[in-house]
């Protein structure tokens, strides 16, 4: 297996607050890495550092052999890293089809008809073929998030990042989004997912990472993580999450 993301000694401070403290992480191609942990533990900051939406204070991050850093090549590297946000962040002035088809045209210089053809296929894959001419505001949250996944996939990313993709959804819509994500995982898409969905972590993850106070406390298989938690804090966290 080839490493796809490598994080070395990553630190991130916001003023005096240490959000990430010496993170080291190796993620391999086709892996599904799920990051869990209490709020404020730095999960989102970590995933946002990977595509440089947050600028690391110290340390290095690589996409394959390419360093992810400020500079003229940053847009190209970002285009290779798909990102799905908690609040979808679809473009409200574009139709669903255009949301998915326009970025490859503009960023990858793909032809319009080719890009639209691919966008339609991707939207069909996430079950939205009947909504391609609607605007995002006409869709439910779950549908919007599936469009966002299709939009990220349209760039043919090397790896897909999810920042709490179901946290802004009504409970009945969580399943449809997780199903799409599971389908991508089965197809071998490399994914790093910050989530509170423990069922998803157990079913889909190859590795579960537990973070607390800016550090990685545990990095384990889902079986070990859920069935034989060694760390007292992980047990507490699981109790809290499962009993809520």
């Amino acid at each position: 297996m080839r490493p796809i993301i490598e994080i070395r000694n990553l630190k991130k401070n916001f003023g005096n607050f240490t959000a990430l403290n010496n993170i080291n992480l190796l993620m391999y191609e086709k892996e599904v890495v799920v990051i869990v942990g209490p709020s404020g533990s730095g999960k989102s900051t970590l995933i946002r550092c990977i595509n440089f939406l947050e600028k690391p204070t110290e340390g290095e991050i690589f996409l394959e052999e390419y360093p992810i850093q400020d500079g003229p090549n940053l847009p190209e590297i970002r285009a290779d890293i798909g990102m799905v946000f908690q609040n979808f962040n679809l473009f409200p002035h574009m139709t669903v089809l255009k949301n998915v088809a326009q970025p490859p045209i503009r960023v990858r210089q793909m032809g319009q008809s080719e890009s639209e053809k691919r966008a339609k296929l991707l939207l069909e894959k996430v079950g939205l073929q009947d909504h391609i001419h609607k605007y995002p505001e006409q869709l439910s949250g779950g549908q919007q998030q599936r469009v966002a996944i299709a939009r990220a996939m349209a760039m043919k990313p090397r790896v897909l990042l999810f920042d709490e993709p179901t946290s802004a959804l009504d409970p009945e819509m969580v399943g449809e989004v997780l199903d799409v994500m599971q389908q991508l995982a089965v197809e071998g898409v490399s994914m790093m997912v910050v989530t509170h969905e423990m069922g998803f972590a157990r079913r889909v993850a190859d590795r579960v990472i537990f973070m607390e106070e800016g550090s990685i406390i545990e990095d384990n298989t889902p079986e070990n993580f859920f069935d034989n938690p060694t760390n007292e804090r992980i047990k507490e966290f699981q109790q809290a999450v499962l009993n809520h």
Partner: peptide, 14 residues
């Protein structure tokens, strides 16, 4: 909204 800019950056927009 800030998320619009972040989404465009994440997609690789210049």
């Amino acid at each position: 909204p800030k998320g619009q800019v972040e989404a465009s950056l994440a997609l690789g927009y210049r």
